[in-house]
Design a protein around this nucleic acid. Structure first.
Lengths: 229, 229
DNA sequence: CGCGGCTTTGATGTTCATCAAGTAAAGTGG
DNA sequence: CCACTTTACTTGATGAACATCAAAGCCGCG
């Protein structure tokens, strides 16, 4: 699904990355860009697809992941608008290294990659801004991976719940955008044990669970779990 | 230890990142830069140190790591010259997020960060080149982390041995630049089990071990171990 | 309304960390 | 250069953490 009516002048993303573009550059960008709408569950691109577009997430929530040789899914991160700016691989590779799918209805703004590369070459401040943003995005992925790795099962589940509550939704009540299995693939534990741990948290009165809906009741205790686990 | 005699015109790094600099820019770079020599074990910078220099590794081997709140070390990667270009955090942070130490005698070339940032703004191709390089460095870290995460104890140890043999030293006989404990901190397993696994490989005739020296005898079997483990 | 996928829980077994005790190696000061 | 200290390495024994397997319930969707 494609929509070309976006007015780039008012786009929130412009302030973050495209702030250093002049009038004409924005106009060009606006004519070049296209918005793509993805429903929850749809795949934005597969690893191995050839790269021709620079993409960023305007709204929704996406999952970055890859398939292991044995067919299991490794979730690299789940991230929200303005944090996700394509894969970094677009600057070094011909093809995507990782897949991206929408875990909530999402809107992607896509621009011809050549156009962006030309901008990078001509417009120093733009290059600087994009470099910072790519670097920060990567930084977050690496930090999160290390955070998860240093924790045990209980700590990892607590960490992920806090991640959704604090980083993604900014509320103590939210709908999990992913299945239990996807959480398991994210934190590197088995599905059964993720479910078991959620049940334990529920029995201990730390959270309440209604299907996909989670309410964090005792956030202090959850933070302790995340810290010590 | 500081050495300013490097002739930047002939520096191997110039072709990789500074190829787009003109005569004058290289001259300025050459006057600004300083080389720092580190002995095996010395720390190049600590997480939390304020960032004022852009650094890259000219020779040697370095370890990127952080300390967990409980004081354990998490090794993020071990990497060789021209792959390591500062932390990405230099573009987004005031202070280093991770520590870097020399695991072999190493030479760092350091340039005032402001100088690099000015170059980024003025010189499009340079910005592009640096962006690619930072992106590729990060890409490697993330891919390696995922590779390790998908394996069990045996697979991880096999993977690391192959990493040193194929990526770092390009030979089947090499001296481990790190302790068994550092390997354990790298692959996220206990020291005792890393040693046990190395012993098993030795007993099975897959490797030979003389202290820190490793000889890979049956690389095909080691690759199988890495693949299935 | 029935089928398939997701979720849940219990039981079982494997993998791995931890503990302990001993040996080798590498610094350190006299 | 040697005695001493410390740090790294090694191996076995034990228990904890986690995966796997299995069976049943639930839920959405055709």
């Amino acid at each position: 699904m494609i929509d070309r009516t976006c007015i780039c002048e008012n786009c929130e993303f412009r302030n973050l990355v495209f702030s250093s573009l002049n009038e004409e550059e924005v106009k060009n960008l606006c004519e070049k860009k296209e918005e793509q709408v993805f429903r929850k569950g749809e795949i934005i691109h597969h690893e191995g697809d050839s790269i021709s577009l620079f993409k960023y997430l305007k709204s929704g929530l996406v999952k970055l992941y890859r398939k292991t040789p044995s067919g299991e899914e490794q979730v690299i991160t789940i991230t929200k608008p303005f944090e996700f700016v394509s894969n970094m691989s677009i600057f070094t590779e011909e093809r995507y290294v990782y897949s991206v799918s929408a875990v909530e209805d999402s809107v992607i703004c896509a621009v011809d990659l050549k156009f962006i590369k030309d901008l990078l070459l001509k417009n120093g401040p733009f290059a600087m801004g994009l470099l910072s943003r790519v670097a920060r995005g990567n930084e977050k992925i690496i930090a999160q991976t290390l955070d998860i790795r240093q924790r045990n099962l209980v700590g990892r589940v607590a960490y992920i719940l806090l991640y959704f509550a604090n980083e993604i939704y900014n509320t103590r009540v939210f709908d999990l955008p992913v299945s239990r299995k996807e959480i398991a693939d994210f934190i590197g534990m088995s599905t059964a044990n993720v479910i078991r741990t959620l049940s334990d948290f529920r029995k201990d009165g730390i959270i309440r669970v209604f299907g996909k809906t989670i309410e964090i009741v005792d956030i202090a205790r959850l933070e302790t779990m995340s810290r010590i686990g």
